[in-house]
Structure formats: structure tokens, C-alpha cells
Simulated assay, not measured.
Amino acid sequence: MRIIIAPAKKMVTDTDSFAVDGLPQFLEQTERLNAVLQGMSPKELQALWRCSDAIARLNVERLEQMDLRRNLTPAVMAYEGIQYRYMAPGVMAAAHLNYLREHLRILSGFYGLLRPFDGVTPYRLEMQAKLPVNGCLDLYQFWGDCLARQLASESDLVLNLASKEYSKAVEPHLPKAVRFITCVFGEQKDGKVIEKGTQCKMARGEMVRWLAEHNITDAADIQTFDRLDYQFQPSLSTEKHKVFLKADSQRRTS
């Protein structure tokens, strides 16, 4: 099984807590993206990033000083979003970190596909960014099917805990022989399942931690996840979508 998650916009440098295992698999493509970004003006970069002046200045400085091979942070420690705080890899036991090494993969507009302890440096580049590269109109075209092919070479089961922005860089390109299961974390309102961004990120991070703690490798075991008051809903689920609802939202609609 391979678990895919999205990155986070906010990143930090931490070269002390854990050593990196090596360099990212698609570093050659990352170097091409980096060259394109470094050739853009600060105004063009801010338009691409769609961010504030302060964030633009920070990331322009990062680009000017960027070294893709030295002073690197393990990917799973580099991102600081809600999902990563709930995953809390910094306080995981060694056995759980080894589970992440084998099973977890982080999707990235800049790095493509990251193993948890691949060394990275802070960057800003979302997968949906409209960045023309090598004749491609955007990053979805640039990465094409190579991320899906890499995942398919590793496992015949992909558990999708990524956002739609990132998962669509993989799902359309996977061979039919590879099962692709998406977990939905929501609340029930007026007979519909409603997903809320922050709650979803919390649940995805908590599920990654739970998967590691229980050494889950079988798709059938995923539905026993019950943290953050979520419960699996077999009547709302399919082979490709596993739905988990907040228990209090079920009580309100029952």
C-alpha cells in the first residue's frame, strides 16, 4: 500500500532533528522547474504564487539562495500545515517512522513525488500553478503520468489522503490494475456529506498517524479508523470511496 498526501504551503528548515535518507527521485525535473522560476521577475513570481507582498519577498529570497542538494530537511518534517501537525512525525516512535518510509508518499508541484525522508528545501509552487515548462501549459502536463507510474511500480493499492488539486495529478494516469481508494471525511447535513477544509486536513493527518501506529497494510482495515470522533459509513461508501462521518453530525440528523 502507498498513502498519498498533499504538501503544505508553509515550510521550515530543520537539519538537526532527523537525517535525510537521500535526494528526491525526480530531482532532474525539479532542477528544470527551478531554472524557470529563477528566470522570472519578482512581479511574475508573485502573480504565479498569488500571495501577499511579504510571502512573495520571502520566497524570492529563497529562490535566489536555493540549493537543492545541501542543507536539506526531511520532507515529512519540512511541511508545517494542519495535516502535518496532526500527523506529528517529530514525536513518532522509530517503528512508526519506518512505516512512513515504506508507505507514505508526498505529492508536490515542485518535487513531484517525495518519500518522507527525501531531503528538500523550502519552496513555493502549488500543483495547480499555471507555469509553462518545456512546452507544457501547466504542472499537470509537465508531470504527466510519471508520478502515477512510480506509484504503480511500488504497489497495487493507493490510499488517497490528498486534496483534489494533488490527487488528480495521479488518479487519471494509474493502470486499472492499481486500486485507488479515496477517504472522505465529512459531516452529514440535509442528507448530504459536507467536507470542511480544516476538518479534512486534521482527519487526514490523524489517519496517517493511526495507520502507522497500527501498521495497516490491508485496505479492509482502513474502515476501522475511529479517531477525532469519525465513524466509517458502509452505506455511503463504495469500493473507491470510503466515507467517514463525525458522530455528532450523525446524531443531529438521526
Rank of each mutant, 00 (worst) to 15 (best):
R179H: 12
T217H: 11
F185P: 07
Y230L: 02
Q199D: 10
N215D: 13
K168G: 00
V178C: 08
V243N: 06
M202R: 15
R204A: 07
L236N: 00
Q223Y: 02
V178I: 07
V170K: 04
N160C: 04
V158Y: 07
I222R: 07
S167Q: 14
A169G: 09
T253D: 12
Q231P: 02
E239F: 03
F180M: 07
Y230C: 05
L245F: 09
S235F: 10
G205P: 11
E171F: 11
K168I: 09
K164M: 09
S249Y: 08
T217P: 00
N160V: 05
A247S: 12
G197Y: 09
R204W: 05
G205L: 10
I216P: 01
L157T: 14
E206N: 13
A162K: 06
S155Y: 04
T198F: 11
S249M: 04
R251A: 14
L245W: 09
H173T: 04
A220E: 15
G205H: 12
R252A: 15
R252F: 13
A177D: 11
K164L: 12
K240S: 14
Y230R: 04
M207Q: 13
A220V: 10
E195S: 12
K189N: 13
M202H: 10
V193W: 10
R209T: 09
K192D: 11
A169R: 09
D221Q: 14
L174A: 09
Y230Q: 03
A203Y: 03
T182K: 12
E187C: 05
K246D: 00
L211V: 06
R204D: 01
H214L: 02
Q233W: 05
F185L: 02
D226T: 03
A203S: 02
K192P: 04
E171H: 11
I222Q: 05
A177L: 07
A177V: 11
